Amino acid sequence: MLVAVNDDYSHWVTVPTRWKDNDLYGHVNNVVHYSLMDTAINEWMITAAGFDPRAAEAIGLCVESHCSYKAEVSFPDTLALGLRIGKLGRSSVRWEIGLYRSDGTLIAEGYFVHVFVERETRRPIAVPEQIREEMQKLLRAL
């Protein structure tokens, strides 16, 4: 079940934590946060924007990422990940993600900057129009 925790984000994905996500200290390890953020972005790209990661001529490469940790989370918690776009350029996009525990507590906030490139040459190109149209729906109002 998808749960919108607040109106700060336009798209929500609900993800259960797994036993193997916990580290020696008994909480979800920091690398899992990045994996979940990447999953939320790619889930949206595939389902909402029609992106085909195996065949698309234009692909998004991560050139920058950041995560600020706010609270702990442990298995068997379920997380709600909110997704929005903070900035949309000609060939780049800044994804912003909030991770929330099932009780509504903010666990982490992060971002990924993707630059769209031509798959073969890896040269920057414009975000494909079909994807850009969908991305504009996630653009954060300032």
Rank of each mutant, 00 (worst) to 15 (best):
S92Y: 08
G104S: 10
A56F: 05
M45D: 03
M45R: 01
A49W: 00
W44A: 01
F116R: 01
R84I: 04
V93R: 06
A55N: 14
I85M: 10
G104C: 10
A108P: 09
F75G: 08
G86L: 08
H66Q: 15
L61Q: 12
G82H: 07
S92I: 01
D77V: 05
V93S: 04
S92T: 06
E96P: 09
T47I: 00
C62T: 15
A48R: 03
I97R: 10
E72I: 12
P124V: 02
S102M: 11
T47R: 13
F75T: 08
G82C: 05
V127A: 02
P124R: 04
F116E: 02
E129W: 00
C67K: 11
A48G: 00
G110T: 09
I85H: 03
L99D: 11
R119P: 10
E72V: 13
F75K: 14
L106P: 10
F116M: 06
P76V: 04
E64N: 15
S91E: 00
V63P: 12
S102H: 13
H114C: 03
T105Q: 12
R119E: 06
S102A: 11
E109I: 13
P128T: 00
E118Q: 07
P53D: 09
F51A: 02
I97E: 11
V63H: 13
L83H: 07
A71N: 13
S102K: 12
L106M: 10
F112I: 11
G50F: 03
A48M: 02
E120G: 06
T105F: 04
I59Y: 10
W44H: 03
C62S: 15
E118C: 02
R101N: 14
K70D: 07
S74Y: 11
I59H: 08
R123F: 01
L79M: 08
V73F: 12
E118Y: 01
L99V: 15
R84N: 03
E109P: 12
V127Q: 02
T47D: 05
H66I: 07
H66E: 14
E129I: 00
S102G: 07
G86W: 08
V127N: 02
V73K: 08
D77R: 10
K87C: 03
R101L: 07
A80D: 11
Y69S: 15
L99F: 14
L79H: 07
A58M: 01
G60Q: 06
A48N: 01
Y111N: 15
V127W: 03
G86V: 05
F116N: 02
E120Y: 04
T105E: 13
A58C: 00
V113A: 08
V115W: 13
W95C: 08
L83A: 04
S91C: 03
W95F: 15
I46A: 01
R54Y: 11
D77K: 10
V117D: 06
G50N: 01
H114W: 07
R119C: 05
M45K: 03
Y69K: 14
I125P: 05
R90C: 01
S68I: 09
F75M: 09
H66L: 14
V115R: 09
A58K: 01
E64L: 08
P128G: 00
